[in-house]
Computed example of a mutant assay.
Amino acid sequence: MDTTGTLDEALQRLHASGPERLGRLTNHAPMAVEALAANGRPEAVHRWLDVYACRLEEFPAGVEPVTDADWRSALGDPRRAADWIGYFGREIAERPWRDVLAQWWPRLLPGMYGGSTHPVIRVGHAVRTLLAGESTGPRLNELAHGLGYWAARHHPVTGLAPVAGAEGAGAALDAVRPIAAREGGFHDRLGRVTSVPVWAASVTDPEEARSRLTELVRAATHRYATHGHGEETMLVHAATAPNAVLRTLPALPRALWVPSLRAAWTASAAVTAMYAPKAPVAWVPPGGVTPEEVFELALAHGDEHVVKLTDTALDVGGEQALAAALRAVELSEPLR
């Protein structure tokens, strides 16, 4: 993890910006700069951020402070993003961050599908930083921003019918039924997802839940190498959302690991249903390229989703994961 102070500088710079732009698009910068720092490239953080800066908007105005007495009425209201970030800032200033996370994780988990799963991904990056190093002010504040964004965009998914799945995560993803109507954005498509294959439903042991979640992240990352052309940006989240949950598990009570697995599976399966292509392509082995060289290619490309998928691919490791990262470089528009 970065010990140069660069990440903290970048986070302080970013906390003057809101979690979204244009009322619907996520600010990816906090996640991307954390990935750069975590992968040993802190010197690239501000250069990357200088290019991305035109996509940032000012921090939004507050409406009314969120309190312990009325938080339920503010949950899922995107107009209250500043109020929620302020609430979590106060909570984390007064209590250990792990205690705040443990209290709010089960409240927020059912709504991890709001904001195209970006809020939980942002939280996952923030938690990784806190677990890896010192709990500095900017890093704690980043967790507050992530949790606040999640609370503001909280969006549950209910009424999904269980359908036949498979034992392995990869086969279960293959069993996902694509939605018929593909028009509209994430929220519109999410409303058309009516079923999810059964997978890991019988899991009750926390350690097995962690093992299954690791399997899911690997399968979803591998699948991008063969299915990423269905939608090069949105299908990234089928892997990065469950990986954010996996990264957060060590900071959570073990009793929360099983429900975390179930929510992560639903998210990955739903994204697959919304964006999977009609047919896969063969994945291309990366040859002699090293993981470090793949990350350099992602950094040179610059797109925030490419950087984040590559970050997850390096967590997974292996040839097909590296092939997935290279496929994202090939399919996506570079950051300019």
Rank of each mutant, 00 (worst) to 15 (best):
P138I: 00
L131N: 07
R95I: 03
H125W: 15
G114D: 13
S135Y: 01
G115N: 09
H125S: 08
A93N: 15
Q103K: 15
S116C: 12
A132H: 13
A126G: 13
V120W: 06
I121V: 13
T136L: 00
R95N: 12
A132F: 04
E91R: 14
Q103P: 14
H125G: 12
L140P: 09
P138F: 02
P96A: 00
E91G: 04
R128I: 01
G115K: 09
F88C: 10
E94K: 05
P106S: 02
T136E: 07
G111N: 10
R90G: 10
T117V: 10
V123T: 05
P138D: 00
G137T: 03
G115P: 11
G114W: 08
Y87H: 15
R90M: 09
G89Q: 06
T117L: 02
P96W: 03
H118D: 00
V100Y: 09
A132V: 05
W105G: 10
T129E: 15
G114H: 14
T117Y: 12
R98V: 04
W104S: 04
A102S: 12
A93Y: 12
P96K: 05
G86R: 06
V123F: 02
V127T: 14
A132T: 05
P119I: 01
L131R: 14
W104Q: 13
A102G: 10
A102I: 05
I121Y: 13
R95M: 11
D99N: 00
G137Q: 09
